[in-house]
């Protein structure tokens, strides 16, 4: 059977999509409660906090969701362990289907930059682009730094048992700056790439539906499609694209997340000039 451009190519399993959906919801809650508490001196900050029941209740929500995120991170690590091809280590970690960064990613980054400047050909990306690998591992880095410092502050009697109390001053600022970095990165860069680029506007639904349009994938990830066609695995990954109500739901959920994210980003950006640092 010859694949047609109206079909989609399977990219994400249900479990992977559920991980992303959890991260989407929990990240928005953490961003809202965290930014709200940071800007509680302003009307905007108090307004955001009122959605969660006020200043103190927002802290409880923030801590509860934070703990949940760490638990899900552990579950995700266990999930990763089940997906590793242990028999062919370490070669399997460097395969084209792996998210582990490779030297080729650095080369493709510069080639991509060259294409943006009109100087080079568009790189032949495989299954994962370098920006997707960066986004994936950035979550690990963020969860360790923000989650670690968050735990220190959530359990101060425990943490000051092995470090002096002024360590909490340091933990607070590391937590704050890393959170601002994560929020700004997701709400500006990730949202732009997934929603506002011409190729993906108004929304790249692959992470919601699980599949990407074949035509776009053939151009964006030509090395992947060629590899699949060469080894005969293409037909197994061809799926019909979502339509109708499912497609609408994906748009509504995705675009709602973008609107909430931009509201938080702009509101916080205005409010930071009115708070005591």
């Amino acid at each position: 059977m010859v694949p047609t451009n109206s079909q989609g190519i399977f990219r994400f399993t249900l479990v992977q999509r559920l991980f992303h959906a959890f991260l989407l919801v929990s990240f928005l809650i953490q961003a809202a409660t965290g930014l709200g508490r940071m800007t509680m001196e302003t009307g905007w900050g108090r307004g955001v906090l009122s959605i969660f029941g006020g200043y103190d209740a927002s802290r409880d929500v923030h801590i509860f969701v934070g703990r949940l995120m760490l638990v899900v991170l552990l579950i995700h690590i266990i999930y990763l362990m089940t997906k590793v091809d242990w028999k062919h280590l370490p070669k399997s970690l460097w395969s084209q289907d792996s998210l582990v960064p490779r030297p080729a990613d650095v080369r493709q980054f510069f080639q991509h930059l060259g294409w943006m400047l009109g100087m080079r050909k568009y790189p032949e990306f495989d299954r994962w682009g370098y920006w997707e690998k960066f986004d994936y591992w950035a979550v690990f880095w963020g969860m360790v730094v923000i989650g670690g410092t968050g735990l220190l502050m959530t359990y101060p009697f425990w943490s000051t048992g092995f470090m002096p109390g002024w360590g909490l001053n340091v933990a607070f600022w590391v937590h704050r700056i890393e959170a601002i970095l994560a929020i700004a990165h997701v709400f500006i860069i990730h949202f732009f790439i997934a929603h506002l680029r011409r190729s993906s506007f108004p929304m790249d639904r692959a992470m919601f539906s699980g599949n990407a349009g074949l035509s776009l994938t053939r151009h964006e990830r030509s090395a992947w499609v060629e590899r699949l066609e060469a080894d005969g695995g293409m037909n197994a990954l061809m799926v019909p694209q979502d339509a109708g109500i499912v497609k609408t739901v994906h748009f509504v959920v995705g675009c709602t997340a973008v609107v909430i994210g931009l509201y938080l980003l702009i509101g916080a950006a205005i409010s930071v000039f009115q708070i005591t640092w």
């Binding site: 943006m116 400047l117 011409r198």
Partner: peptide, 24 residues
Amino acid sequence: TLLWGIREIFMKKHGEAGNHGTDK
């Protein structure tokens, strides 16, 4: 990200999406 967005605006028109591979 900004450069990427601008570059895609000026890509050649393609049937469904960006014509990454052929405009250069």
